[in-house]
Amino acid sequence: MKTSFTFAGCKHWLLIGCVLLAGCVEQVFTDPAVGVAETLETYESTAFCGRLWEPVYPSIERRPDVPGRVMAGFLTFFNPGRQPIPCNRLAIVRAQGQFEFSGTIDPALRGNIATAFLEVVSFDPVFPISVTEAKQWGPAVSGGWSGETRAHCGFVVRTFNARGWRPAESGAELPWQNSTDLAIAGNSSQFQIPLSGVRPINVTSEMLASITGDTFRLRLTIEPYDRAIRSQANSSCAGRFEVRLRLLGENR
């Protein structure tokens, strides 16, 4: 975990409530402790599929680790059956990136944190991004589907508070966490890949709740959030995220 502190003033102006802060103090944390969990879902359309389906597909979590980078994404594999009684098969691999920022809050920010941002800085794909919107498996999704194949996909930041969580050792598998939505309203916690720049996401409530004395332990996830995840098509969008945590307070 790395941290930096600036007292003279922030590099940018931020609207916090109704107060525009020109001068403020900030502390930035980088290189969080990380881990990844993976699930595999398989579906068959009819009872005529015959023997059990035991697919073997690439694992997202088995990609080589990069310290401080958060791995997340999804892969879908669709195998259409033959007429007249087709056995359609779908496999969905999802990876949940789990990470933790922890450390000591600078004295100038203790009791003085006005805003906390998780900043999604960059994304390094481990597979080519190719996402196809096709007919959904299971209950229909409102709005239909476009049939397009696109080179962008969606993710969401959520929070979790698993007692005793520890970052994964290289190649180790973690359990999927029951994450919850951030306190911010609407789709403010969602973002698209590729990034158009640094994507800030407000995690002020989560940050304040994670503080004990002058230290904190903030746990978050990055998870795939895309309407094509259950499409009857082949898609891939997975990779490593660079993230950092920025704390901001009034310069008093």
Rank of each mutant, 00 (worst) to 15 (best):
V36Q: 04
R110G: 04
T104Q: 10
S189Y: 03
L40M: 03
G23V: 10
T132G: 05
Q177P: 01
L109P: 03
R69F: 01
D31S: 15
F77W: 01
S59T: 07
F74L: 06
L14I: 12
R244Y: 07
G138W: 11
K11C: 09
L174E: 06
P58H: 06
Y225V: 08
E119L: 07
V34Q: 05
R217M: 04
L15T: 15
V19H: 11
A22P: 01
V120F: 06
I184A: 08
S231M: 11
T149Y: 05
E41M: 09
V28H: 04
G73E: 06
K2F: 11
V19G: 00
I184V: 14
A183I: 11
V28M: 06
Q136F: 08
Q27M: 02
F77Y: 08
V34T: 15
L21W: 08
A209Q: 13
V157H: 04
Q27L: 00
P224A: 12
L14K: 10
Y57C: 00
E54L: 01
V93H: 01
A37P: 07
I129T: 13
G138T: 10
F216R: 01
E61C: 11
A233N: 10
S142Q: 15
G197M: 09
R163M: 08
D65H: 13
R227C: 12
E44H: 06
E54W: 00
S142L: 14
R94V: 04
N234G: 06
F99D: 05
A91E: 05
E38A: 05
G23S: 13
R217G: 04
P67A: 11
V156H: 05
I105D: 02
P125D: 12
Y57D: 04
Q177L: 10
C237S: 05
A172D: 12
W165S: 02
P200M: 08
K11F: 11
R89N: 01
P128F: 14
E173T: 13
